[in-house]
Write a protein that binds this DNA or RNA. Structure first.
Lengths: 249, 249
DNA sequence: AGGCATGACTGGTCTAGTCCAGACCTTAAC
DNA sequence: GTTAAGGTCTGGACTAGACCAGTCATGCCT
């Protein structure tokens, strides 16, 4: 059997357990702290040399460790050990910045852009809109300890929030809507599913096109149900743990 | 540019957009119904021949379509077009069978086994147990239209449910606990995160070891908070959409 | 009629590379 | 001090296979 940390006793050839063996060694190094959270792993080519394996096989091993949530990659920058997951409680009074601080993390928000757009079909469906309705869209990237983990597209009806784009949009939208427009959320409806992150979103999250993510699509309703807006949140799939309490029906 | 459905006009060589082009063609065939839900795709080798590409590249393309939730694979059986996702509402009064029927699907449940075991660390943490506490574990596989999409490990304290293993365990545990033991759930705490499915669970779900899944870990509390049990639910990642309504704090 | 063996087909694993394109660092010039 | 260019390093994309192991259907034998 494979000695932990030893690259030499691993057999080669088709279906010989190399993948499993090398994966186990790398997992061991992460577990025992030889590779620490946030730090970059040796490059794929270096690991290939060490384990005397091909880049395709080594790459597949890293992808499986990534699926496990143990490591993450930044496109053309390297593979890194994943920190513990951010705990996302949809019921929390606090917003992202507050929750992150409470969890001992350093939150950050960057506004990518703001524009009046025709929203994608999923947003029209969520908000029950006609085909030509335009919305205000604010795109932001959230980070934890300087690592981009969340890309958000926020959509709302511009007429309901006149002058919205004149405000500082890096703050909590919840607080902005309450303080400036007197708009209070009454309830939120969440849809959660694994998906792929593509296009510009992938770039902002520093992943390659088609990488796995967790999509949280949220529709926010005002207390009187007259006003709705929504958020499409694409979370790096290794970076988030959602916790929800539910009363039995 | 690539003619939709045409495999011949795709360039070859490193980073030439073959992947993107072939992916786009296959996505188009799924969207326009040439490949229909539940049906098997042509094999990897057949698609390699058609698109004149290598199995590694073709495989990567399929994996990206899988990440998108468009197709799924069964280990050594083929790739299939994904049906629409099962909508999982944790707040629903109904249980899996009822929800599935309401969504026009044919639910199924198979009991894999039942045993008294030392639970894994995650379960001990969820239930706040000591290191040697044994629990009753019931393992089941749920299917929709004869497709296995969910592997569940249910854990509870055997002393609270004497004679549990003598019952039909393919029914709703919620109903069984209420009817036989007078045990009513008061609230449930959910933890949701993407993960990898491994070991026997992978086999039951017909995926290879290390495949992506959505883990829903649920702790069920009785009304008087005296009794707790929990479920580890591993969902095929393309097969589930979680919907939750939340009142603002 | 049922069970077992065999063959064909499936995806998984593995090799040994090449080429592409973005990221980042260093150096030089203005 | 800033900007640009060049070089090195990174992962992504791609090739043309080979070999492994599980799945399933078919045929034969009891």
């Amino acid at each position: 059997m494979i000695e932990s940390g030893n690259a030499e006793s691993i057999r080669r050839g088709g279906g010989t357990g190399r993948l499993k063996a090398i994966k186990s060694v790398l997992r061991g190094r992460i577990d025992d702290g030889e590779y620490t959270a946030g730090k970059r792993l040796p490059s794929e080519r270096q690991l290939c040399d060490e384990f005397e394996t091909s880049r395709v096989t080594l790459h597949e091993i890293l992808i499986q460790l990534e699926t496990d949530g143990l490591i993450y990659r930044e496109d053309r920058r390297g593979w890194f050990v994943s920190p513990t997951r951010f705990v996302y409680n949809p019921q929390s009074r606090g917003h992202f910045q507050m929750s992150a601080s409470e969890q001992g993390r350093k939150p950050g928000t960057v506004v990518i852009d703001k524009a009046i757009v025709v929203p994608p079909p999923i947003v029209r469906e969520l908000l029950d809109l006609g085909p030509d309705q335009e919305l205000a869209r604010i795109r932001r990237v959230r980070s934890i300890n300087e690592r981009s983990i969340l890309y958000v597209e926020h959509y709302c009806i511009p007429e309901v929030f006149p002058g919205l784009f004149d405000h500082d949009l890096s703050v909590s939208m919840t607080e902005l809507y309450r303080e400036v427009y007197g708009f209070h959320y009454g309830r939120m409806k969440y849809r959660i599913m694994p998906t792929a992150v593509t296009g510009e979103a992938a770039g902002f999250l520093r992943v390659s096109n088609g990488s796995p993510a967790l999509l949280v699509a949220r529709v926010n309703h005002s207390i009187d149900e007259r006003v709705r807006d929504c958020d499409l949140e694409y979370w790096r799939h290794d970076a988030v743990l959602i916790e929800v309490d539910v009363e039995a029906g």
